[in-house]
Simulated assay, not measured.
Amino acid sequence: MAARRNTYGRRQGRPLRAGRKALLEEALPRLEITLPEEERPLRPQELFDPLPERLFLEIGFGGGEHLAWQAAHNPGTGFIGAEYFVTGVATLLGQLRERGAEAPLRIYLGDARDLMERLPDAVLDRVFILFPDPWPKKRHHKRRLIQRETLDLLARLLKDGGELRFATDDPGYLSWALQRLSDHPAFAWQVAGPADWRLRPDDWPPTRYEEKALKAGRRPAYLRLRRRPRKNTCYSS
């Protein structure tokens, strides 16, 4: 676990402004997920009361605008946002306050994989991995989030028919992700034509990072994958 956490660098950049710091101190304790000390699964019933009809997870939500939008537009759905950087968590809390989002939402401040390892099987309906760090240097590729180990975790956690959404503006990372996603037996790429992976569905709002990429002339790709029905298969690295 420690090796994973060390790949991120510092948890906070510039000091938070007083308003953001106060919001973090006020709101985060009510929403933050704390993993049980004992090695046991973390049941959704421990996070949400009442238990929502669906459960979505966003890994690395950055500024939180996508997660806040999803929370505001999906009644009856519970949300888990996992983010390593304190600044991103504070920004999400500001987004939620501005939008007045009422959907049940919990935040995990740390490496999402630590949380994922504690969740029970077939608990998630949708997972978002949007514009993760591409780690472009070859010696850093082992730090990329899309690895066989992570896909095995996602295959275990997603319900049959559940959806994985992935976006990147880095061509090298796109090739890397497509190869590993295509090779994994649990996932089926939902693409009907050449333009599909260049278009966002209506329920996939843009993020500030995406807008920054477009202004810089980088063309994002948007992948949607379905979790294939289980056939008593154990996925392991």
Results as ranks from 00 to 15, higher is better:
Met1His: 13
Ala3Glu: 11
Ala3Ile: 02
Arg5Lys: 14
Tyr8Gly: 05
Arg14Gln: 13
Arg14Leu: 01
Arg14Glu: 09
Arg17Glu: 11
Gly19Glu: 14
Ala22Tyr: 06
Leu23Phe: 00
Leu24Tyr: 11
Glu26Phe: 00
Ala27Arg: 15
Ala27Ser: 11
Leu28Cys: 06
Pro29Glu: 05
Arg30Gly: 09
Leu31Pro: 01
Glu32Asp: 00
Ile33Arg: 03
Ile33Met: 10
Pro36His: 07
Glu38Met: 02
Glu38Val: 13
Leu42Thr: 05
Arg43Cys: 04
Arg43Met: 14
Pro44Lys: 04
Pro44Val: 08
Leu47Glu: 09
Phe48Arg: 04
Phe48Tyr: 11
Leu51Val: 15
Pro52Gly: 10
Glu53Thr: 13
Glu53Phe: 02
Arg54Leu: 12
Phe56Ala: 12
Phe56Asp: 13
Glu58Phe: 06
Gly60Asp: 03
Gly63Phe: 08
Glu65Arg: 12
Trp69Asp: 11
Ala71Gln: 09
Ala72Leu: 15
Asn74Arg: 15
Asn74Ala: 14
Gly76Gln: 06
Phe79Asn: 06
Glu83Pro: 01
Glu83Lys: 06
Glu83Met: 06
Tyr84Ile: 12
Thr87Pro: 01
Gly88Val: 03
Ala90Asp: 07
Ala90Phe: 09
Ala90His: 07
Leu92Tyr: 01
Leu93Trp: 09
Leu93Pro: 02
Gly94Val: 01
Gly94Trp: 01
Gln95Arg: 15
Gln95Tyr: 04
Arg97Val: 07
Gly100Pro: 08
Gly100Cys: 05
Glu102Lys: 14
Leu109Gln: 13
Asp111Leu: 02
Arg113Ala: 12
Leu115Thr: 02
Leu115Lys: 04
Leu115Arg: 01
Pro120Leu: 07
Ala122Met: 06
Val127Ile: 15
Val127Lys: 02
Val127Asp: 01
Ile129Asp: 02
Ile129Glu: 01
Asp133Ser: 08
Pro134Phe: 12
Pro134Cys: 12
Trp135Gly: 08
Pro136Ile: 13
Arg139Thr: 09
His140Ile: 11
Arg143Gln: 09
Arg143His: 15
Ile146Phe: 08
Ile146Val: 15
Arg148Ser: 13
Leu153Thr: 10
Leu153Arg: 15
Leu153Pro: 00
Leu153Cys: 09
Leu154Met: 10
Ala155Trp: 02
Ala155Leu: 03
Arg156Asn: 05
Arg156Leu: 03
Leu157Ala: 07
Leu157Asn: 06
Leu158Ala: 05
Asp160Val: 01
Gly161Gln: 03
Glu163Thr: 15
Asp169Ala: 14
Asp170Arg: 00
Pro171Phe: 03
Ser175Thr: 10
Ser175Trp: 05
Ser175Asn: 07
Trp176Ser: 04
Trp176Cys: 03
Asp183Glu: 15
His184Pro: 05
Ala186Cys: 09
Phe187Lys: 00
Ala188Gln: 13
Gln190Met: 13
Pro194Gln: 11
Pro194Tyr: 10
Asp196Glu: 13
Asp196Thr: 12
Trp197Ala: 12
Trp197Gln: 12
Arg198Gly: 08
Leu199Phe: 02
Arg200Asp: 07
Pro201Glu: 12
Arg208His: 15
Glu211Trp: 10
Lys212His: 12
Lys212Ile: 04
Ala213Glu: 02
Lys215Ala: 15
Gly217Trp: 09
Arg218Glu: 11
Arg218Val: 05
Leu223His: 06
Arg224Asn: 00
Arg226Gly: 10
Arg226Val: 08
Arg227Ile: 04
Arg228Gly: 00
Pro229Trp: 09
Asn232Arg: 14
Thr233Asp: 13
Tyr235Trp: 15
Ser237Cys: 12
